[in-house]
């Protein structure tokens, strides 16, 4: 292999990077802007949820349980149940929101959660209108 001086010295041009401002996103201090349509945690509009359990049926991870709620917010909710998601199983594929007939189940862009107890990852979707 013949020795080429250019190829030995050209890498030093990379050092010009030190004059640029670092590109890092400093997460805990600076939050990056939320992307609309990001698949994060679930939200469920209880005033339109009809308790049909389509989301439970389509979920291949069996992450969705239909649980009974005390007071039914939607008179059309025949089963009296709403979905609860196990984030130890969920894969954020959003098939459950695709099959939701009244479009009450949605994903919000919030998606960060760390915890030291595995049992806390059973998630009751927040009641947010979409």
């Amino acid at each position: 292999m013949k020795f080429e001086l250019k190829n030995s010295l050209a890498p030093l041009s990379a050092l010009s990077k030190i004059f640029e401002h670092p590109q890092t996103l400093c997460y805990p201090e600076v939050k990056s802007e939320t992307v609309s349509g990001y698949r994060g945690f679930h939200i469920n509009d209880l005033s339109t949820c009809i308790g049909c359990a389509n989301c439970q049926d389509v979920c291949m991870n069996e992450a969705i349980d239909m649980i009974a709620i005390d007071k039914d917010k939607n008179p059309k909710n025949n089963s009296g149940c709403i979905p609860r998601i196990d984030y130890g199983r969920c894969c954020w594929c959003s098939l459950c929101t695709d099959v939701c007939p009244p479009d009450s189940l949605k994903l919000e862009s919030e998606c960060i959660w760390a915890d030291d107890d595995a049992n806390r990852f059973l998630y009751q979707p927040k009641d947010k209108p979409c």
Binding site: A14, L15, K17, I18, E20, P22, Q23, T24, C26
Partner: peptide, 10 residues
């Protein structure tokens, strides 16, 4: 620190 700057981070 300096090598981090070459990498483009803090």
């Amino acid at each position: 620190n300096l090598s981090a700057r070459v990498h483009g981070r803090f």
